[in-house]
Design a protein around this nucleic acid. Structure first.
Length: 207
DNA sequence: CGCCGGATTCCG
DNA sequence: GGAATCCGGCGA
């Protein structure tokens, strides 16, 4: 597997918990109007499908929105949250097993200045003054910075406009950080330690 | 740094 | 009605 290999089927056809850990350190890339932007995935959460109260597919819920989660692993599941922001997920496992991994943060890799510009534009600012490590440190910011919108929902992740690749380095380990964020409605499933971070990300953020 | 409220739109 | 969020304002 060469160092800039684009990930395909065999990588994605695994359960979301495994995939959430494996995605740490991989590079999420988009090409919008010929502009490449990308970020090293530094924070993820697993959403474990029909048995997980925090999952959109809990209890086998199958609606217009969640239909994407039932696709084969390796597709993008993008939805609007709080009426204002998009969240980018990687569909895991096989067809009809609706698991997904939320991309909560990335570290800018390619086109950081474009990412910065998109964040500024979104916030109605002339410039975005955030340091690189804070440019895309939340699921809404990831989508703003990389230009991910509803248009990407259902796209295959080895598409020309959105894909995930290896980056020639493998983090020592993904860190299980603990509970998932903002899912208090999920009862005891809110306690599950299904959130992962890149070991170095916390340190970088304070630099 | 932490807590709090408001923004805004689509889904169930 | 509420959500897998963000930002600005305020207090410590």
């Amino acid at each position: 597997m060469n160092s800039s290999h684009i990930l395909t089927e065999e990588f994605y056809n695994r359960d979301a918990l495994t995939l959430a850990a494996e995605l740490i350190g991989k590079v999420l890339c988009t090409v919008n109007d010929g502009v490449l932007t990308s970020g090293i995935i530094s924070e993820t959460e697993a959403y474990m499908g029909v048995t997980d109260r925090a999952s959109h597919a809990y209890g086998g819920r199958r609606t217009a929105r969640t239909e994407t989660m039932y696709m084969e692993g390796g597709h993008a599941y993008v939805y609007l949250i709080y009426g204002m922001y998009y969240c980018m997920n990687v569909v895991a496992n096989v067809r009809d097993v609706p698991e997904a991994v939320l991309i909560r943060a990335v570290l800018p890799r390619d086109g950081a200045e474009f990412m910065r510009r998109r964040r500024a534009e979104r916030g109605g600012m002339s410039v975005c003054r955030a340091k690189d490590s804070r440019l895309a440190d939340g699921p809404g910011k990831v989508c703003t910075a990389l230009g991910i919108t509803k248009e990407h929902d259902g796209k295959c992740l080895w598409d020309n406009e959105i894909f995930i690749r290896e980056d020639g380095f493998t983090p020592d380990r993904a860190v299980i950080t603990g509970k998932r964020i903002n899912i208090d409605y999920a009862g005891e499933d809110a306690e599950r330690p299904w959130r992962f971070t890149l070991d170095m990300a916390d340190r970088l953020r304070s630099i």
